[in-house]
């Protein structure tokens, strides 16, 4: 499923890189520790996290992730937004908790990396 479709079905707010939502999502990963993401997330995965600082973009870009879903109403700051636009990393935000987002993604058929 494409990121754009996931975004619509979960009513996510697209904060950056609206032009990059056509990516086919290969799976999902959720964690707030960046090194865990570095270790486990695979290219094309969507990453669900509470973190919204600029380094999230660096991690997503290095791993060629499809996009980042930032949960619990956290809003990425201007530096993060600029960086994400520059690197072409979609950041989508939601009021939902990580648990709920992951559950919904699972229902939609987005698999975990295990």
């Amino acid at each position: 499923m494409r990121l754009e479709e996931l975004s619509r079905k979960l009513s996510l707010e697209v904060r950056t890189a609206a032009g990059k939502l056509g990516t086919e999502v290969t799976g999902g990963y959720a964690a707030d520790l960046l090194s865990c993401v570095m270790a486990k997330a695979q290219a094309g995965n969507v990453w669900v996290t509470l973190q919204s600082h600029p380094n999230v973009v660096a991690v997503a870009s290095l791993l060629n992730l499809a996009g980042v879903i930032v949960t619990e109403g956290m809003i990425p700051d201007a530096t993060t937004v600029d960086k994400a636009e520059e690197e072409g990393i979609p950041i989508l935000t939601t009021e939902l908790t990580t648990f709920t987002v992951v559950g919904r993604l699972f229902e939609l058929g987005v698999p975990g990396v295990d």
């Binding site: 520790l33 960046l34 090194s35 270790a39 600082h53 380094n55």
Partner: peptide
């Protein structure tokens, strides 16, 4: 709190 310092860095490098 920012998500760094998970204590996984050197392990990740080794992998």
């Amino acid at each position: 709190e920012l998500g760094f310092g998970a204590g996984m860095g050197l392990n990740n490098i080794q992998r």
